[in-house]
């Protein structure tokens, strides 16, 4: 073995260490992205797992308690399956229109989704062009496409 090779071997070990670090922190740090329908069908299976899901906001369901800073609402997907969400934190801007809500968190035993993160999304976020298609149908379509 030449000296050069030895050095490279040593450095490879460093690379392997990085790789191990990478893989070991992967499962704990990720959130599984699933649809509301799938979540509702296999509730028991997903309890306690860190999940991400998204759906359209049901305007009537919003309950905002400013003093406790608690937000409750329901989102539903294209099959009209809805999911109750609880969030201890701020209410996002424009939380009343027909928007897509992305939630990250865990499902509790009562079937309520405890969201750590609540984000809203509309297709127009950074692009001007989609503005003319700004209606619920498009959102639904986009929602459907993302699931595919």
């Amino acid at each position: 073995m030449t000296k050069n090779k030895k050095i490279i071997t040593g450095l490879m070990l460093a690379a392997v260490a990085i790789a191990i670090m990478m893989f070991s922190s992967m499962p704990s740090a990720g959130s599984k992205e699933i649809s509301i329908s799938e979540l509702e069908q296999n509730k028991a299976e997903y309890v306690g797992e860190y999940l991400m899901t998204q759906g359209l906001l049901n305007k009537e369901s919003i309950k905002w308690d400013a003093d406790k800073i608690e937000l409750q609402f329901e989102i539903y997907d294209e099959n009209n399956v809805s999911l109750p969400v609880f969030h201890k934190g701020i209410k996002p801007d424009n939380f009343s229109d027909d928007i897509i809500v992305i939630v990250e968190g865990m499902l509790d035993k009562n079937g309520v989704f405890e969201a750590e993160k609540v984000q809203t999304k509309c297709p127009s976020k950074y692009e001007g062009e989609d503005m003319e298609n700004y209606d619920v149908e498009t959102h639904k379509q986009i929602l459907g496409e993302q699931k595919d």
């Binding site: 922190s25 992967m26 740090a29 959130s31 599984k32 990250e104």
Partner: peptide, 14 residues
């Protein structure tokens, strides 16, 4: 078949 999103915790840890 399931999409696992990786957020800041992963990147910060690594």
């Amino acid at each position: 078949g399931t999409k696992v999103n990786v957020g800041p915790p992963y990147f910060e840890k690594v």
